[in-house]
Design a protein around this nucleic acid. Sequence first.
RNA 1: GCGAUUGUAGUUUAACGGUAGAAUGCGAGACUGUGGCUCUUGAGACGAGGGUUCGACUCCCUCCUUUCGCUCCA
Length: 387
Amino acid sequence: MANECVKGFKDYTGEEARIREEIRKILVKNFELFGFEPAEAPIIENEEFVRGDNSNDEAVSDIFRLKDKGERNLALRYELTFQLKRLMQNKKLPYKRYQIGPVFRDEPTTGNRFRQFTQCDIDIIGSSIKDDAEILAITSKILEELGIKAVINVNSRRLMNEILESEGIKEKDRIEVIKEVDKLDKLSEKEVKDNLKKYKAEKLIDIFKKSEKYFEKYASYSDVQQLKEACSNYGIKTNFLPTLARGLSYYNANVFEVKTLEMKESVCGGGSYMFNGAQSTGISFGLERLSQLAKLKNKNSQTLIISLGQDKESIKLAEELRENNLSCVVMYNKVSKALEYANAYLIDKVIFIGEDEIKKKKLKLRDMKTGKEEMLSQTELIKKLSK
RNA sequence: GCGAUUGUAGUUUAACGGUAGAAUGCGAGACUGUGGCUCUUGAGACGAGGGUUCGACUCCCUCCUUUCGCUCCA
């Protein structure tokens, strides 16, 4: 059928859409609380800008490309961070911004991977390791608010490089070696070891198996050490995972990842990187995955007003409710239809306005869950609904 | 992209080499001030294109889609 969604793309309606909106609100609230300011940037950029210098990024090979009538080579953004190179221009540092928007990747899809998905990013341009900790503190606060139980894994790219260097792994093999090591949680130790033999790197496996204490002998372990100390000021816990690499190649120091038991894909990913000579740090939340995992109730706080031939009064009441920040819908058709509407859309407060109510100057409020009805004055009603 | 898998109304599904039945949801009504029960009624489907066949939703091929691996990522 021609009206089907394209592979990897999705519609969101009803409960699902409401939950996504709810999560967005929670994210924005927390981003603002930590002093980040909003920013928006186009979905389409010049292909050259999108590709950047991360040519060995796998994600880069998955970009959607297009051309305009002027034959410009354009692309859909596949992440948000690179746009900061432009946004940060002329900004007083540290520049703290949040950005929420769709990104696109022309790659295979699975249950939790789409070709359009929404990233929610916070970044601090001009940062230190203390800012890494702040980023993780926000992350942990948000996860808690959403009722998501997760582990924050951290590692340092510099540490990983130092280890590879000290083991004499050739520069050109490092990316491949890191990829193999990263598979340790999936493949058996032996398989990874066999794969590593190609690069004469099989010794690595014994190193990465060691406890955290062992890594203290590397100078770059201080990245992790400092991060841990900074995190303890916020009272949050992180898990040192020496094999953690993260894909995007611009990361140059600490990297982070948020994992849950329910989902094999990570919920958030981030790290520190250098843009225009400024050390920076940030993290990205995947909205689709958050809404998959979040324990939020689908609340519809609307009120339905049924007009029984009293349209003028009903509209007046509706406006009154809206003045008081109460969301409401007015219906003028048959009572049974109106109640069915309330049912279908999970509205549990219904107000009747008919001759009787006008005469008594009281309104009838029905609770759809319990079936209880009561007559209330308008002020009592507003008080009750505001709760 | 490769390998496997899937495809019947919005959703869940039934049957058959002779063009499809149900449940639920949706619309209208029974019921002109009371829903989630009941009854009547309406709209709604064989993913697309080829081929085999007198005839294909059913068999074959291609593409698309679904799900799962690999690769990689939010």
